[in-house]
Write a protein that binds this DNA or RNA. Sequence first.
DNA 1: TTTGGTGTAATGGTTCAACCAATAATTGAA
DNA 2: TTCAATTATTGGTTGAACCATTACACCAAA
Lengths: 233, 233
Amino acid sequence: MFTAVSKKNLSDEIGDQIINKILSGVLSPGNKLPPERDLSLQMNVNRHTLREALRKLDTLGLLSIRQGDGIYIRDFRESGNLELLKHILYLRRDITSDIMKNILEIRRFISPEMAYRAAQNRSEEESEHLKSLLEQDLPVEEKDLAIHQSIARGSGNILYIFILNFFNNIFRDFGALYFSFKENQAASEKFHKNIVKAITEKNPESAKKIMNEILVYAENITLKYMENKYEEI
Amino acid sequence: MFTAVSKKNLSDEIGDQIINKILSGVLSPGNKLPPERDLSLQMNVNRHTLREALRKLDTLGLLSIRQGDGIYIRDFRESGNLELLKHILYLRRDITSDIMKNILEIRRFISPEMAYRAAQNRSEEESEHLKSLLEQDLPVEEKDLAIHQSIARGSGNILYIFILNFFNNIFRDFGALYFSFKENQAASEKFHKNIVKAITEKNPESAKKIMNEILVYAENITLKYMENKYEEI
DNA sequence: TTTGGTGTAATGGTTCAACCAATAATTGAA
DNA sequence: TTCAATTATTGGTTGAACCATTACACCAAA
């Protein structure tokens, strides 16, 4: 019904402000940022608070901080990471829709392959875990999350786990809306049954196909929701 | 000939220490970290220095920090991101090789698809850029990087750019070694010519195949280098 | 002219001490 | 027992000072 509000601390606000300046081109790659002392004065925050923000941007691949020298803007097209993309998604509302489509496209390409590998590589243990998940009496949304995670772990490739986290992170907000409709719940429950069967039976092609089908289904609905969401704004 | 050494500041050292504790299971998901004041005392660093480390771990998806409450360990299998994987790669030398193979596997799956999309979607501008890159007199290593980036940008999907950054980041060290051999240089130059041709001519299948071939070639060599590297240690 | 040393200023890194703000736990009144 | 007020705990922010590294200008030796 209601979605959580995110309370930001000063440091995050500062960070977002700087990210925006970089993404919008006000600050270009190679540019040197003013010294921390000046910048904190300009932004009217303490140097420590600013430094925490800068450290985050550094972790996102946006800055290059060098003691004794200064702080330089990096080209995020060369050094940015997926975590940054999440920020871009939220901060640049003008291209949010385009990025979402990009993410959906990649997900439809990757997740079926993940299911394929899981059907090949899943351990007996992971197989049992999947089956037990099916029978557990959980909210569909939670069950869905858990099954996808179990598939990622069963794939035998740790990258799928982190890539899946990225997708989940992005679509978290949509999940509540999506699963509020009975027909979507039914579709997911059917999907759960089928995908678990394919994976426990070690049928890669089937697993891939089943994953692809639910993604196509969910994509259409997600896009529809997104359009409505934009109309609200 | 020589590779850059990375000097770490205190804050990063603290961060690595905590990451290690989490990865090795000394700190489990859900566990509460000691208060910042206590922790900084235990680690014999100032609270601010510690806080910068914590903020980084937060960005990596390892911690959940809540004012007035405390700092909790998150399950990195649920909230970790690719940036964290990079740290895991360096900090957990016991599984470095396995993770590398995971990364190579995913790359071989994703990059050909990226090339495919680029051949479909590349703009006239990106096409020209690719061709001009071919003729520029650059070190092979730089040219290789630039061409891959151009392909990612030409794909029309911003995610490929960030995923490519991840790969580049991981294989940066190997690049210097790889391109120090004449035969590898020759292989790459041939690859550059062919992939640019396929993409400018809008031939997706060909682009995909060509990308796959160079990856297979480079993978074998990378794995060989890795084995040697481990023998050194 | 080039190379390497020296000193100085600029700039990020770290420390200390204090207070603010949000949360959780406790207490006590209804 | 319940709920509101109070208190203690804990992360967030501020200010000032000092440390460590780097860039730069300058100089001396080759």
